[in-house]
């Protein structure tokens, strides 16, 4: 636990006389001060990710709120050496999955690597690889909305939250190879969704 002490923002002399009868109080207060320090900077990220999952402001706020209280209760099981961001996003996601929206979403069958999608894995470069417009933020957002949720989730964790594959695997509870193929599929799907724009007369 001495490693934990060093991380605490509050110096040791907080153990003043009024706290003496309950040292556990001080420990849990500083522990949760610790939690606050770790969680506060992630608030915008968690809210953004929660909004992508729930697609609703009020639900996103509730989800983050529930995540904070669950995470604090479980904070003793958090190991200092692990990635706090991945740890708390995993809690957020598991909380989402047990919500009504989450249950409804998970009913949709997602085909992991369906044969049809595999036919695009031909390695030779196609002109479409390069021909997409990225200057239109709105179009990209609409394309992201159209992605299948499991693909979108993996891609957002990678590109927006900058979580490493091994931690995404932990968050989504899938093998690292699946993380890799979902992200790759998500990008190919985005390209396809962004394609027709060029074809349509504008």
């Amino acid at each position: 636990m001495s490693g934990g002490e060093a991380l605490l923002g509050v110096p040791m002399h907080i153990r003043d006389s009024s706290q003496r009868e309950a040292p556990e109080n001080v420990a849990s207060i500083t522990r949760s001060a610790d939690f606050e320090q770790l969680a506060l900077p992630l608030l915008p990220s968690l809210y953004n990710h929660a909004s992508w999952l729930t697609r609703n402001h009020a639900e996103a706020e509730d989800l983050v709120q529930e995540t904070f209280s669950k995470a604090l209760r479980a904070f003793d099981s958090f190991q200092e050496s692990t990635n706090f961001k991945a740890w708390i996003i995993r809690i957020l996601r598991n909380t989402f999955l047990t919500s009504r929206t989450g249950i409804a979403t998970s009913r949709t069958v997602f085909l992991e690597d369906h044969p049809h999608v595999l036919d695009t894995t031909d390695a030779s470069p196609t002109p479409e690889d390069n021909l997409i417009r990225l200057d239109n933020q709105g179009a990209l957002q609409r394309a992201l909305e159209q992605l299948e949720p499991p693909l979108r989730e993996a891609l957002l964790l990678c590109d927006v939250e900058e979580v490493k594959y091994k931690d995404i695997a932990l968050i989504l509870d899938i093998p690292i190879g699946t993380v890799m193929s979902r992200i790759s599929r998500a990008r190919r799907a985005l390209r396809q969704l962004l394609q027709p724009q060029l074809g349509e007369s504008q």
Partner: peptide, 17 residues
């Protein structure tokens, strides 16, 4: 691909509380 990644990062950071 790098450009798409950067654009996704921007577009995905969409919801601020």
């Amino acid at each position: 691909a790098t450009q798409l990644k950067a654009a996704t990062a921007r577009a995905g950071r969409r919801y601020a509380p």
